[in-house]
Simulated scan of single mutants.
Amino acid sequence: MVLQNSGKFKPDRWKSKDRSSGDGGSNFSRDDNSEKRVQHSLFHNEIDSKFGFNRHQEPIERIGWLVNIHPTELLDEDKRLISAVDYYFVEEDGNRFKVSFPFKPYFYLATQKDCEQEVASFLTRKFAGSISQVEQVQKEDLDLPNHLVGLKANYLKLTFLTVTDLTKVRKEIFPAVKKNRERERTSSAYVQMLSSSLSGGVHSEHSKKLTDQMENIIDIR
């Protein structure tokens, strides 16, 4: 009997099940639904167990070779989804295990001078339930011409429970940042100075309070 390649790819049954949904074939990793994400995490944990990689939870020392890593999501003590990384190990006798290390993803935002507090309050309200924490930190800005002298700038650090929440918030903020940076490049320093001189400090402060705080975000890192 001669075997011939039909040219048709037949996915495994579990892969077909993973991709089946009511949104036109998108898999769980693209779905923001928490219940589906939990089921997806449990399903991959079941697959790992079938290959001998059971999650190590006992407080004892084990030595093994790291053979793979994979991002995942876990349920914490409060039954909330959190991001984690699965580390897969093989011991000298051939036994296998994995260790799950939780972490909180984050990114930084730069704002207009003296607008950090207002922007932080605005983002906390706007993305309530998605942002875990907003804090002000000082970081060295390597884009500054004199960054070697150790000058530091104020940034907002946005921390999240999951990468999904981070991606969702960043996707909404990034267009505003891009628009604001373009406006900064095209604006004239002379026009800004003249406007400040004519309007006065009181009017300028009043305008800052009335403006959309998204306009005060000038960089994302």
Score class of each variant (00 low, 15 high):
Asn95Gln: 14
Asp78Tyr: 00
Arg62Ile: 08
Thr72Trp: 04
Phe97Gly: 09
Val99Gln: 06
Leu109Asn: 04
Gln112Asp: 06
Ser83Ile: 05
Asn54Thr: 13
Phe97Ala: 10
Phe51His: 13
Phe89Lys: 05
Tyr108Thr: 06
Gln39Arg: 11
Arg80Asp: 01
Ala120Ser: 15
Glu116Ser: 13
Gln57Ser: 15
Asp114Pro: 12
Glu46Asn: 07
Val119His: 00
Arg55Trp: 00
Val38Ile: 12
Ser41Trp: 00
Lys113Glu: 05
Ser100Asn: 10
Asp76Val: 00
Glu46Asp: 07
Pro71Thr: 03
Thr72Ala: 10
Asp78Leu: 03
Ile47Thr: 04
Val38Phe: 01
Gly94Ser: 06
Ile82His: 00
Ser100Gly: 08
Gly52Asn: 06
Lys98His: 07
Pro105Gln: 01
Val90Phe: 03
Thr111Val: 09
Ile69Asp: 10
Cys115Glu: 08
Arg62Asp: 04
Arg55Val: 10
His70Asp: 12
Lys79Leu: 05
Ser49Glu: 09
Glu116Met: 07
Ser41Ala: 15
Pro105Val: 01
Cys115Gly: 01
Leu75Asp: 00
Pro105Ile: 00
Glu118Trp: 09
Phe53Trp: 03
Glu61Gln: 14
Gln112Thr: 10
Ser83Val: 07
Leu66Gln: 11
His40Ile: 04
Asp114Phe: 11
Pro105His: 02
Leu75Lys: 03
Phe89Pro: 07
Phe103Asp: 04
Ala84Cys: 08
Asp78Arg: 02
Gly64Arg: 03
Ile47Trp: 03
Trp65Ile: 15
Leu66Ile: 13
His70Leu: 13
Lys98Ile: 07
Arg62Thr: 07
Ser49Met: 09
Ser100Leu: 04
Arg96Met: 13
Phe97Arg: 11
Gln117Val: 13
Phe97Val: 11
Asp93Ala: 10
Pro71Ile: 05
Arg62Ser: 08
Ala110Val: 12
